[in-house]
Every structure is written in C-alpha cells, then in structure tokens.
Design a protein around this nucleic acid. Sequence first.
DNA 1: AACGACGTCGCAAACGTTTGCGACGTCGTT
DNA 2: AACGACGTCGCAAACGTTTGCGACGTCGTT
Lengths: 337, 337
Amino acid sequence: MAHQVTIKDIAKILGISASTVSRALKDHPDISPKTKRMVQAFAQKVNYRPNALALNLRRSKTNTIGIIIPEIVHHFFSSVISGIEKVAYAAGYNVMICQSNEDYNREVIDAQALLDNRVDGVLMSLSKTTFDHDHIRNLIDHGIPVVFFDRAPNEIEADKVFIDDFMGAKIATHHLIATGCRNILHLAAPSHLLIGQRRRDGYIKALEENGIQFNPDFIIKCDTRDDVFANAGKILQLANQIDGIFTVNDSTAIATMQVLMKNGIRIPEHISVIGFGDGPNANICYPPLSTVEQKGTEIGKEATQLLLNQIENTEDIYKPTTKTITPVLRIRESTLM
Amino acid sequence: MAHQVTIKDIAKILGISASTVSRALKDHPDISPKTKRMVQAFAQKVNYRPNALALNLRRSKTNTIGIIIPEIVHHFFSSVISGIEKVAYAAGYNVMICQSNEDYNREVIDAQALLDNRVDGVLMSLSKTTFDHDHIRNLIDHGIPVVFFDRAPNEIEADKVFIDDFMGAKIATHHLIATGCRNILHLAAPSHLLIGQRRRDGYIKALEENGIQFNPDFIIKCDTRDDVFANAGKILQLANQIDGIFTVNDSTAIATMQVLMKNGIRIPEHISVIGFGDGPNANICYPPLSTVEQKGTEIGKEATQLLLNQIENTEDIYKPTTKTITPVLRIRESTLM
DNA sequence: AACGACGTCGCAAACGTTTGCGACGTCGTT
DNA sequence: AACGACGTCGCAAACGTTTGCGACGTCGTT
C-alpha cells in the first residue's frame, strides 16, 4: 500500500525545490555536485522511480507501440509478436496488444483505443473482414506511424513487410512440378487479401513457366482447418483428377492430408501436399509436411525496426518502403523426392 | 498531422471554460441543457476523444492490466492471453504484455516496467528460472493486485488459478493403468514449480491407488522437445522395461513418440503415451495423442475475473482464493483401448 | 422591497513531471 | 570599490483532465 515516492516528496524531505530534484536526477550541469550527490543517494535509497504516466503526458510520448492482429492463438502471429517484443524491448518500448478476432468492428475499436492511449506507433495485420480503412487513415492523420505486416491494404501508403508470397508460392508449386505433379489443386485465401492474391499468382506463374495449362476449377477458396472439413466433399471429388495440392497455409495442408488419408488416399504416393508457413505443426503432423518457411519472428523484427525508424525520424517527410523477406523451401515427407 | 482536439480547444472556440466543457460532456446536472447540447454537438462534430494519458494521471488509474508470461509462442500461453483479452476488453481494460523468455532477470524488469506504468493489476505465470519473489512483493506492496495462473509461487499469498494438476496427472496415469500399463515412466517438470510437483504427485498417487510400487528411476526431469532429444538415450534405454509414459506436457509427449517410433517402437502397441495440455498438436501428431485437456482460455478468463474483482473491490481487505479448473481426459490413439 | 433558493458557470488547484527564465550570491577583475 | 561573469537554485507554466468551491443572476416568496 506504500504510495510510490515522487519528486515532490523528495523535494519536501530534502528541503529543496522539485525542479532541482528533477535536474539533479538527470545530471543537469546547473546543479552543484553536492546537491546531486544528496539527491541521487536519497532517490536510490527510497527506490524512486519516475511516474511514467506523468512523463507520458508531459512529453506526449508513451514509449508504447500498439499491435493489432487477427488472433493471438496462431503460431505465425504469436511468433511475429515475439519478434516485435524483442526489438521493441531492446529500444525501450512496451507493447500493447489488441486482437481483432478477424472482426472489422473490433479492429476499428482497437485502433481508436490505441489512438486514445497515444501509442507512439502501430503495427498491424488486417482482419479478414475489413474492407474499409478510415480507421487506419485516422491513425495516420493524427501523426501515428503505422506499419503493416503480412496482411496489408493496397490503398494505403505505409511501410509494409511481407514474406515474398509470390515467390514462395512459386517455388512450392515448382517443387510439386519438379517431383512429377501435373494436376495441382490450390486451396486459396480470399483474393481481397494481398496474400491470397499473391500466393495464387505465384501458383499460376509456376504453372505457366512449366507450360502447364491453368485450370480455374483447380482453385478453391479454402484457408482454414474448418474450411477443409466443410469442403471435404469437393476436394475428394477432385482427388482422382489431381496429383498435387498446394495450400495457402499449413493448417489447411494438414487438415487436407487427414481428410485424404482417412479416405484411403496415400501421401505423397497418390497425392503430394505442400503448405505455406512452417509452424511447429509441420514437424509434428504425419507425414511431416513439406512447406515454405515464413519466418514470423523475422517479420516482426523488421516491421518493428521500420516503425522505430519512423517514430524517431520525425524531421523529413517519410517515404514508405516495402520490405520483402525471401522464403525458403522446407522439403519433408508429404511430397515426393 | 492534425493534433487531437482537447477540452481546452473546445472551451476556447465555444467561449466557455474548460470545466464547463468537461461537465457538459459527462452530463453533469450543474450545466444547462442548452450548453450541454452545444458542447456535445460540437464535440461530436470535431470527433473529440478524451486524452487517456491525462485521465490516467488524474485518476492514477490506467484501465490497463499487465501480463507477464514465459513465452508467447506457446499454445497454452497464447490461449490464456486470448481468454484474458476477452474479459479485459469487455470490462474496458487494455492489456500490456511482457514476455520473460523464461528469464528471471527479464521478469524483474518486466514487473518494474508494469509498476512504472501504473497498470491496475498484473496477471502472471512464473518463469522457470525465478526462485526469488521480491519483484512480486514489490508490486503487491505498492497496491497492485497480482493473480497467478499455471505457475505460481508457494510463498506468496495471492489469487491463483490452475487446472487441477494433481487430478489431471492422476486420471492420466489411471488411464494408462486401466489399459494395462504397469511400468510407467514419468517425464517431469522441475519440482520447484508447483505444476511439476503436483503432476508428479498425481502420478505417484495413481500408482499407489492401484497398488503399483513407485520406482524413482521412472522419473526423469524432461519437459521440452529439446530435453527429449537430449535425453533420448536414457529414454530408449528404459524402453524395454516400460509399457507406458506419462509426460508433463504434450510437446514432450509428441517428441517422445517420435523418438520411440524412429527406433522401431510401436505406439501404443509397445508403449502407450499420454500427455498433458491438449493443444492443437495433439490432433495433428501421429498417432493422435491421448492427453489431458487444460483449457487455457478458461484459465485466462477466470484469472482476469479474479483480478478485476480485486481491482474494483478496494474497500475491505482481500482474502486470496485459489481457483481450480477440472481437467478432462481426451483419449485418442496413443494409448490402448 | 428584501431575502433566500436555485440554476449556471468559472477559478484554481491537483495528478507528477520538465524547463525557460529570472533571482540571488560569490568571486575575480579592473 | 564597482562591475560582470558565473554557479546554483526556485517560480511558474505547461501537458489535458477533473472537481471543490465560490460567484453571480434570476426568480419567487413573504
């Protein structure tokens, strides 16, 4: 119940003014060595700690960065957070995390909450249900830098960091083709998300480069475990026409393998499956999943670095950049040799 | 770049005092209906939002709760966060998350940061390397309520919420015995963690209740995937003496299964394996893992509810309670029928 | 006509800092 | 002896709110 000791308390006890205490604590040249020693010793003794609330108000800077993500319980996002946390912490920033639950309305409220709390910057990945971006413009208009990762809107000029989705999808598809697949199904994310669009484009590009005719029937919108079970009928119906599947993420791939295997289809002998993401599941599922590595932690670090640059570099007008992280193929046992 | 409009701004433009604006905005009876209408209409027009920083300082209340967890990239902890976030949000609180990375020193710094930022309360789960609790007492001494979940110190009086580790371990071990196992290895967490201790005790209790002699050689300290690989030799050496394994968590169980299977041991025919946790991995690994369900989200919700009670109930002295959530057996294919 | 009640507002202080500016004393120089 | 330079400190305002208290006007009552 001990109330935190303040500069005023110290001043009163020591019989000097608060300004002198404040200056003594930060080694200001105006203060005599004797006073400094006295103040610093006393402050240490009573374990003085500046009140961050007062500091925040005074400098209107909170040393806090806000994060808005679709959901925390998701390996990719939690590893992004981990990366963010690491570099933010090293730079003396705290993080405030909001979860949109893939809900646009919640995302709007979150953005407002972060603005109300005057975070110094925002790191975000769009929810699947947001098509309007006024809440983001609102942040930017109020001078709060925003950088996106993974899921970013086309229409907003801002720093963005992605894995190279196009390239990743391309090398995944290439790998399927190189191991003999010719009729490749793609389980895709909605195309209003850049990532859905780009991974689909990479898939198509790989087909083209190998002279394989693109078949529009071979793309199904299906990007969650539940989606797979909902679409199981459709997928099984295609099963005898295809020899490979490229999915937009790992959990879709794993659920697909489970559905196929339960119906007597052998992987990779009958159908090869490759995912995208490389979470820990890829090592744990059966068979171990070939996939594309999408380094969440690295993305988080890069995004935070970009944000800090913007926060600390207030002078000139900022020119948005897009960082792209090159993905790597992880070949395991769900594809042929 | 538009600076946020303040009460002072409104007062100046409308030609009235800031106090009147403040009161008009919160419908104070002292203010005339005409003035209220004018102020409220104007505030709405310019999208006035109170500055949370100033409010925080004024009431020395931040409507923020701090979280300290060992690591975010872990299904159990991220689902706890998800639960916390849910009830905190509903009650108008933000969350500030710190990751100790299982490092005591970092945990101390995190606690200090949360204190500096005057969070209204702290939810935490101890790192594996903390044996000293002064940083926690410091929080409590300064009037910040703390509630623990999952990993809590014995020596501190505070609200705590656990799954019933003892019971969970007991029913898991019972299940192994009921399906025919007699020589059961336990891969355990360090016993200075309550959870390690309790799960071990539950294991021993189950043996006792079934008249099975407890063999101290059948407990190995081994509670991560990496630990399993490090201890692979020791485990394989025991393999022909045992017919069941109960592990302190799922990832240990899964890694163990992989090590055993790679060495030609069949699961569950030769050795049954049961875990603790029931993350998504349990469904994804091969064979699907029998385990004990440890509802992270529910734990997070309960813990937050306890914390909010404490925060809002400042009147009388608080009597710490411990909530215990009953676990449920999830039988899948890594144990016999 | 005088007084009290009430409605409506503004002043000022406060939360805990920081910082520009001026005040005061001492000392050395001319 | 007088003046300037410099060292050392405190006052006051500011960040954006809230709130106790008092001020002022109007109206109704006796």
